[in-house]
Design a protein around this nucleic acid. Structure first.
Lengths: 180, 180
DNA sequence: TTAAACTTTCAATAATTTCTGAAACTTCAA
DNA sequence: TTGAAGTTTCAGAAATTATTGAAAGTTTAA
């Protein structure tokens, strides 16, 4: 690793747990992203100075996040690993996966609590609040799944739109009737 | 705590670390949200069975996230705590705070690494990738700050727009020239 | 002032999470 | 088959993070 690459990879390690995984997994995905060729598990282990067993577990975890994929080189029995898509695809994958882990369980718990009749006035207040949380989480979920299903170029256009979004909304009704 | 409230509060505890804090802090904010009146630190400590010291630290943390605020009752020396805003405001606050913690440090590191000249062909590849990451993080940052600055109603309208956003984009140029 | 009522701090400990390394497992060429 | 080359598993150790509780700090009323 050159100094610049090492700086980046170590940063990915430090941020790893904030992004939803742990230090070594952060380093692994950082290194794979900036490598111009696929790497073997042993190369990861040697380069990052972490045990072979830890690399094996990290790979499993990164595969469960769909962030890396295996590549085979003809005539070579080793498994090579590389990022599972473009940077853009990796980013949306991380958001999607985190949404699943951070919001879906809560959504399902809230649904089960909300359908019951409140037993007293405190519960009525509490269930109102839970309903509010439920509705926001549901909006966010359906909104992000809409965004995911758009192609990346369109999404980038939307993001670049920035403050004009406000204007777009002001005109929305007119716009939608025109485009029917 | 009634059973339903307890279920919700304990769930907030379990999800706490996924949402960016720890178990007891998750429980604290969950309880404060569903309480129909402000609570004192001792009430939190007793209700949740956690030490008074832990509550004090949790309050500090929740204040640094701007999720709770202090309320004083005339003639009572105790500090009472309640959510710092509507559910919607709390949600955007969590997103904003997490963005600061999860993306800003990376953005600034990437900037410093990218401006240097690549020393060889590997670094050139790596710095290209870092630039891609940087650009995506920057788009997300400016996009979310646009969203934050919109009033909640407008934001809800935008979310409800859902897949129609695609149509909006198709018409954007026409729209923007009309609205000048 | 004093002391009661309350809050904060922080060193020690408990709980949890991560990491290692050796053993078990798998695959394949000879 | 065998064994070499590779991967995975998992119990125990190490590292990190969360929690307690006692002491120190703060504020206010008398």
């Amino acid at each position: 690793m050159t100094p610049k690459i090492e700086t980046f990879v170590m940063h990915c390690g430090e941020m790893g747990s904030r992004w939803g995984f742990n230090r070594t997994i952060g380093q692994m995905v950082g290194l794979l992203i900036v490598s111009d060729k696929p790497l073997t598990a042993n190369e990861l282990s040697d380069t990052l100075n972490i045990s072979r067993g830890n690399v094996s577990m990290g790979i499993k975890e990164l595969q469960s996040w769909r962030l890396i994929k295996t590549k085979h080189v003809p005539g070579d029995r080793k498994d090579y690993y590389e990022p599972a898509g473009t940077i853009w695809e990796l980013a949306t994958q991380v958001f999607e996966e985190r949404r699943k882990r951070e919001m879906d369980p809560t959504l399902s718990l809230l649904r089960s609590v909300i359908i019951e009749e409140p037993a007293n006035v405190q519960e009525e207040y509490a269930q109102d609040k839970m309903m509010e949380i439920h509705n926001i989480l549901e909006s966010i979920t359906s909104w992000t799944s809409e965004l995911q299903s758009m192609n990346p170029d369109k999404l980038k256009t939307l993001m670049k739109l920035g403050s004009s979004v406000g204007k777009v909304l002001d005109m929305k009704d007119k716009l939608l009737s025109n485009s029917k």
